[in-house]
Amino acid sequence: MSVIKQYLQRTQGILNTVEQQETAIEQAAKWFSQTILSGRMVHLFGSGHSRIMVEEMWPRYGSFAGFNPIVELSLSFHNLVVGANGQRQAMFLENVSGLADRILRNYDLSPTDSALVISSSGCNVVPIEMAELFQQRGVKVVALVTKQHAEKSTSKRKDGKKLTDFADLVLDTGAPMGDAMVTVPGLDTPVSPGSTVGGALIVNCIKAEVARLLTEAGQPPKVLSAANVVGAERAVTLFEGAYDEHAHRLAKLYQQVGIPSYVSGATSTVQTPEA
């Protein structure tokens, strides 16, 4: 079997694994749609290459507002590889305790919110603490992991807990332990990971089901759509409307965050200048 066919065959297995999780995917979509219908946001977080799944959900063609992509460049900026902002630093920071708390300090969370936390191994400290903090604030957490890989991996947390220990629901990308799926003759290490394939399948299944639920509830989403599908004028209207809706939802996460001020509506002794 060629290495190309080998990879395609393995991805078929991933597709089967995702299909077997339909009920769980529907549950995740139900929670997310409830959050969006309430005017709040579904928080998305992934460090390292898990950032890919965050951006797959929103914003891109075929997606819609209601999701808050939390992407820290210090954890996911890979293209320089070495030197300043290199991969070594990003991998180090993924396991710095307390960083998740500093990130979430920026948001006024609500139990009405929900979250999708992505980590193939489920063993790095920052995504684990992110899920833990979400749960402490009453936010339902959906974890997207690679089950085989996570079960065989050792947590970087001192107490040994993994992302799955702080999840209300766990979804599996279906990739193998180690992620890489293709064996090349003469090469002693496998190549070509599969978690991105499984993750993208799950994210888009969730997205489709959320869109269905929102539409059935009388709040059809403004989907970012190509001009050659909906026409140039309609495409611009959808993009502008979706971005504005995102801004309006995001404003709620900032308005009451942290220390109150007269701007946030708190009682203040600030004197209004006389005319």
Rank of each mutant, 00 (worst) to 15 (best):
S76A: 15
R88W: 06
L104M: 07
I52G: 03
L169G: 08
R105Y: 07
S74G: 14
L93F: 14
N68Y: 13
Q87W: 03
R88G: 14
F77D: 14
V139R: 04
V141L: 01
G122E: 05
T146Q: 03
G62L: 04
G98H: 11
W58I: 08
R51A: 11
A100R: 08
R51H: 12
L133I: 08
F64H: 13
D108H: 15
A150I: 00
R51G: 02
Q135I: 00
L169P: 10
W58C: 03
L144Y: 02
Q87N: 11
E132D: 09
L93M: 13
D113C: 05
S50Y: 03
A65C: 14
V139G: 03
D168G: 15
L73D: 11
K147D: 07
V54Y: 03
E94F: 01
V71C: 09
A167F: 09
V125H: 05
S153R: 00
R60N: 07
D159V: 02
A84G: 00
V81E: 11
R157N: 10
P111E: 09
S153G: 00
R105Q: 13
I103T: 11
L93C: 02
P69G: 10
I103A: 07
V142D: 01
M53R: 07
Q136W: 00
E72G: 12
V141Y: 02
Q87T: 12
N106M: 09
G138S: 05
I70D: 12
S97W: 04
D159Y: 04
H149T: 02
L93H: 05
E132N: 10
S121I: 04
V139S: 02
E151V: 02
S97A: 15
P59F: 10
G66P: 12
V142I: 08
C123Y: 01
S114E: 06
I70C: 09
S121R: 03
G98P: 09
A131Q: 04
C123H: 02
F77M: 13
W58D: 09
V82E: 14
G86C: 06
K147R: 13
L73R: 11
P69W: 12
A131V: 03
F67W: 14
S50K: 09
R60K: 13
S110R: 07
H49S: 06
E72Q: 15
K152E: 13
K147N: 06
K158Q: 14
F92A: 13
R105T: 10
I103H: 06
D159K: 04
E72C: 15
D113V: 05
L133R: 15
